[in-house]
Nucleic acid binder design. Structure first.
Length: 383
DNA sequence: CTCGGCCTGTTTATCTTCGC
DNA sequence: GCGAAGATAAACAGGCCGAG
């Protein structure tokens, strides 16, 4: 873990322009890449014996590794498309073990997961691509999944070592990179930090906006909501009633971000998960009654565990104005305390939930209306 | 035309903070 | 100490580009 010591020295960095910093990062990256290349070489040496000898379902045969399988309309899609569940993850891990034993390969799945075909030919017949495809096919044995699905899973679960909140030194490293601008900075940082690229991208965006500020103490008050709503109407040119169930282009959100001084993803989240519901649900809703109804509806579906739930399907049972995000949040609150609720059989979970609801405070959904003064006002349902 | 890599929008999950 | 709100990160997904 000595490269961690090296990285940790970034924690106290003051001068981002110091060229030795980026040199050190470059060194770390090269070490990682050298390790990956070396591992790839070991695999390439075994290429001759990499022959598919087992029966493959049709959807595991095609060449495409990094993109979804194109399915012709007339072919029934007999593989799973939902998120890979824990049982499948175990099988993949078992297949990997089997593979490396059979082929005498060191146990370094991360190397393969990180390796990218940057300089070599991308033709499916090149040795590197053959090897990658063979291994993913090997890992897909016994699964009703395409090679692409398994590849994706492999990348995210074996390639990224770190999850959770970003630490100070990670942020500093990003700032150093923003200053020195290495090529393809997102994949670069993803490799150096062992983090998922999408998260890096967002973090960089945040840092460059300099909007890390005022994250504390932000509160959506009624006047703030009014301002937000008015701006939304202004930028879209639509009256309130047309905003229901609408999606807005990024440019609209960026305008709002500037006007409100708040990251547009937060605004988006607030709009769909809160304000939308408060504006467009036009009846008196008691939250616990709603929770109960959601749980009852969940029983109608063949979902096995929590992550199988497709909230947009559930949404169809509820009146206009609700959003799937709101339903998700409201329901997940029930299970906050339930250990491993995402792995628990849904039936059991629902029974627990129905009991648990009775102990939760029974609140009303606050709904809002734009009054004659064009200000948002809470609708009072109590007689 | 195909592919992989990269970029970025959307959905889901988890962590932190705040007010009661 | 608790639940809800808010913030942040992970996972999923699709589009674009350039090389062959």
């Amino acid at each position: 873990m000595e490269d961690m010591d090296l990285l940790a020295r970034f924690e106290n960095v003051e001068d981002l322009s110091d060229p030795t910093l980026i040199d050190d990062l470059q060194m770390v990256l090269e070490q990682i890449q050298a390790e990956d290349e070396e591992f790839m070489q070991i695999l390439l040496d075994k290429k001759e014996s990499m022959v598919v000898t087992w029966e493959q379902p049709w959807y595991q045969e095609p060449n495409c590794l990094t993109r979804p399988l194109k399915v012709k309309d007339d072919v029934s899609q007999d593989y799973r498309t939902d998120t890979i569940c824990s049982e499948e993850a175990e099988l993949i891990s078992k297949n990997w073990k089997d593979f490396r034993k059979t082929y005498g390969v060191p146990n370094k799945p991360a190397c393969l997961a990180r390796w990218r075909n940057k300089d070599k030919s991308r033709h499916p017949n090149t040795p590197e691509e053959l090897v990658r495809r063979f291994i993913m096919a090997y890992l897909a044995r016994g699964l009703n999944r395409t090679i692409y699905q398994v590849y994706k899973f492999f990348i995210t679960h074996y390639g990224n070592r770190f999850k959770g909140r970003y630490s100070v030194y990670e942020e500093k490293i990003m700032l150093v990179c923003m200053y020195h601008k290495p090529k393809n900075v997102v994949p670069y940082l993803s490799a150096v930090l062992g983090r998922e690229p999408r998260g890096i991208y967002k973090k960089l965006l945040q840092l460059s906006n300099g909007k890390i500020i005022e994250r504390n103490n932000f509160k959506w008050t009624l006047p703030l909501c009014t301002t937000f709503l008015k701006l939304l109407m202004k930028y879209t040119g639509e009256p309130l009633e047309n905003l229901q169930n609408k999606r807005f282009g990024t440019s609209i959100w960026v305008q709002l971000e500037e006007a409100m001084g708040k990251e547009h993803l937060c605004l988006q989240m607030f709009w769909y998960n809160s304000l939308h519901v408060q504006l467009f649900v036009r009846c008196d809703i008691k939250i616990n009654k709603l929770r109960k109804k959601i749980l009852k509806k969940l029983k109608l579906y063949p979902y096995k565990i929590w992550s199988d739930i497709r909230w947009k399907e559930i949404l169809e049972h509820f009146p206009d104005g609700f959003t799937h995000g709101f339903l998700y949040k409201t329901t997940s609150n029930i299970f906050r305390k339930y250990k491993d609720y995402r792995q628990t059989p849904l039936e059991k979970l629902i029974d627990y939930g129905l009991k648990r609801i009775k102990t939760m405070p029974n609140k009303r959904l606050k709904t809002l209306i734009l009054n004659e003064k064009q200000e948002l006002e809470i609708i009072n349902y109590k007689k």
